[in-house]
Design a protein around this nucleic acid. Sequence first.
RNA 1: UGGCCUAUGGUGUAACGGUAGCACAUCAGAUUUUGGUUCUGCGAGUUGAGGUUCGAAUCCUUGUAGGCCAACCA
Length: 559
Amino acid sequence: MTTDNIKEETQSLNFLEEIIEQDIAAGKNGGRVHTRFPPEPNGYLHVGHATSICLNFGLAVKYGGKCNLRFDDTNPVTEETEYVDSIINDVRWLGFEPANIFYASDYFPKLYDFAVDLIKKGFAYVDDSTAEEIAALKGTPTEPGKPSPYRDRSVEENLDLFERMRKGEFAEGTKTLRAKADMTSPNMIMRDPLLYRIKFAHHHRTGDDWCIYPMYDMAHGQSDSIEHITHSICTLEFVPHREIYDWCIEKLGIFPSKQYEFARRNLSYTIVSKRKLLKLVNEGHVNGWDDPRMPTISAMRRRGYTATAIREWAKRIGIAKRENLVDLSLMEFFVREDLNKIALRAMAVLDPLKVVITNYPEGKTEFLETENNPEDPNGGTRQMPFGRELWIEQDDFMENPPPKFFRLSPGTLARLKSAYIIQCDEVVKDADGKPTELRCTYFPESRSGSDTSGLKPKTTIHWVSAPHAIPAEVRLYDRLFTVEDPANDERDFLELINPDSLKVVTKAMLEPSLASGTPGDKYQFLRLGYFTVDTDSTTEKLVINRTVTLRDAWSKAKG
RNA sequence: UGGCCUAUGGUGUAACGGUAGCACAUCAGAUUUUGGUUCUGCGAGUUGAGGUUCGAAUCCUUGUAGGCCAACCA
């Protein structure tokens, strides 16, 4: 037996996997595993949904089961087809194909029949109380509720009233259908929860067919049951709903789906509240739902995060029932890990400083070979033009360097990556004393691959040939908020926005091979980070997003 | 002052009565034509108090702390 086998066999399970394996072992549902991802199409999917998608689809994959994508579209006033399309797109982009794409709204007729069945069995009644009256009789967590005066209507009357609700005979808010459960239950959810409400609203799929719509407690579990979902996984805030979930299924005598709850995963420095996200977009704090600083899946995609990275991240942070705040650096680790393998290397200068090689012939251009990806044996090489005038990074030069700085400074040597070793002879400065040009000499015998100079520079820096460089706009992103947990801060979240979350570099210089870049292409700009071509790019102008920086020992060292 | 859920290094997550492990982060070192990658190593943890047991992170009791529940939202 190999080490790998041992490792695999002793791999620990999360609590949901344990439940599933026990169910399979017990022969429950014939060993079948069927999950579902049930978003409400009222907004864009965010990183929290991403973990849920990975969980539900991942479990199905792991146990040879199925996972449905089901739109929980039972509230017509907030839901739109636009969101449906983006959700399907996001699920597929993450690498999962739903076994079925279903809509709770497709079950409206069936759900209506279920409601009628509950009425007939004496488990539901039509209540004429107003919202205020219902709330008043509901009691409090420490006091039991009191029965509605309409609670003991006859089955016949309830049937009649409910049918007339459906026909549109009553105004919104005047009548509801409620479960006849337990007004004295310590679980507030069990105090005769609303099952149906009247809403004369246009539904994105059923149009004006209905003027009554099922509530969550009437729709969700029953939809699970209709689809024969075996493991219905949701977040912790639904724990108290489990009782009514089971109650409805039992009273209806339908397929017994089971609900299990986990703690949603929170990412540090981000916010996922739909209301707050909407505010960021509407008030222009960010540039739309897919602004690369947003926590939406579409934004992460645009920023250059890969589906692989997100899936691996979700796998690694695991699943449990305790409160958590996952450090952003863990996400960034997986983004770097994947990008390190797949991103093409390129050279780009964000803050250009002119270098003139005084002993290099004027007008001469030579092409030097450089590797596309040292991590990929089949990555191949490309040719980089090199000449007398180059751009290097301002940060790579210091006239008066501190002790640990070992890049270019007057009199020191530096290797130009895949090219020659140079030495800085003279610094040309502007009126403010800022270097504007370096006059250097190169060592012709130090060419990469055939270096006979014997010189040992302490550093290798990146560069771009000035006459061949492509100017581009590069957008540098940082965390959107200044505090780890903006959702739980006493200050208004708008006050916590990081003023430096976006820096636009307008005069970046890229190596010429970038000219053919199209949106979504991923690169590692040597020594700078991982970058991707943004959707704002045009044929005239490239726009590049920085996905994440490289780990940077130097910036840490200097503080 | 009701019910429910939860508590393990800085962070996330394992250990299912038998040596508290893994990953990230941190720090130190090696390698390196990317201050990247890779490799090696260090430091750091069971919410308090009782109890059961030969033995408790794990079981029991009881504190403490955090979260959720009184939308015609999901």
